[in-house]
Write a protein that binds this DNA or RNA. Structure first.
Length: 212
DNA sequence: CACCAGGCAAGTA
DNA sequence: TACTTGCATGGT
């Protein structure tokens, strides 16, 4: 299985090259994007983040203290804006209360305990937590998403009903914990899924994984 | 017009 | 426990 996963990675990397994810300049922006992109395409998220930047609200302090309805208004293009305003502030309250800065939050603590804390926040599920740990905190965890499931399922590596933990374990159990590898691997999966493996494109004819 | 997009939590039986 | 529903904008 290890070799299988490495072969897939190699094929994707050969086809697309390094992706340099996550789109976000700072750790704070990555947290904001991680919440806003829940079940939403990135172009809508990007509009919402642009609104926050223009309004001068891209700081931990500003976002924590902004009244929730005003935050909702700013992030409107990302969809589910009332829900996401609450979720984002839940997350940022936790960060601000446990550390002085987003960067400081990740220091000197085991990844597993950080993950448990994040999962205890209302609105932070496994994918959002792992995105935060990997892309904002540089912790070696694997981010699973709908694309990961679709691609591995179509190639017969996992069952239809496989859950998040099972998919994640597939990568964590067979690959060495490497932040750069996990970062690029997830990014490459999203890249190829968007291009070749949408729901509307089940054939995957030109897919770099054809034959796997 | 219908369907989809880098989820998650709460409600129901 | 196993399913269903609400959340909502913008692109195809």
């Amino acid at each position: 299985m290890r070799q299988r996963l490495l072969d897939i990675y190699q094929a994707l990397f050969d086809c697309f090259g390094p992706q340099h994810w996550w789109p976000g300049e700072t750790p704070l922006e990555i947290l904001v994007g991680a919440v806003l992109t829940q079940n939403t395409n990135w172009s809508n998220v990007s509009r919402a983040i642009d609104n926050l930047r223009r309004a001068g609200l891209l700081s931990l302090d500003a976002l924590v203290h902004l009244p929730t309805p005003l935050l909702a208004e700013q992030i409107r293009p990302s969809g589910y804006y009332n829900l996401k305003a609450v979720r984002l502030q839940n997350l940022l309250h936790h960060i601000a209360a446990s550390a002085g800065s987003v960067e400081g939050y990740f220091d000197r603590r085991p990844t597993a305990s950080l993950r448990e804390e994040l999962l205890a926040i209302k609105g932070i599920g496994p994918e959002t937590a792992d995105s935060i740990l990997l892309y904002a905190g540089n912790k070696p965890t694997f981010v699973v998403d709908a694309y990961t499931h679709r691609i591995l399922n179509r190639h017969g590596l996992v069952a239809d009903e496989s859950d998040y933990h099972e998919l994640q374990a597939l990568f964590l159990d067979h690959l060495e914990p490497d932040v750069t590898l996990f970062n690029e691997y997830h990014a490459l999966i999203v890249r190829t899924a968007k291009e070749f493996c949408r729901k509307s494109n089940p054939a995957c004819d030109a897919c770099p994984l054809k034959g796997f």
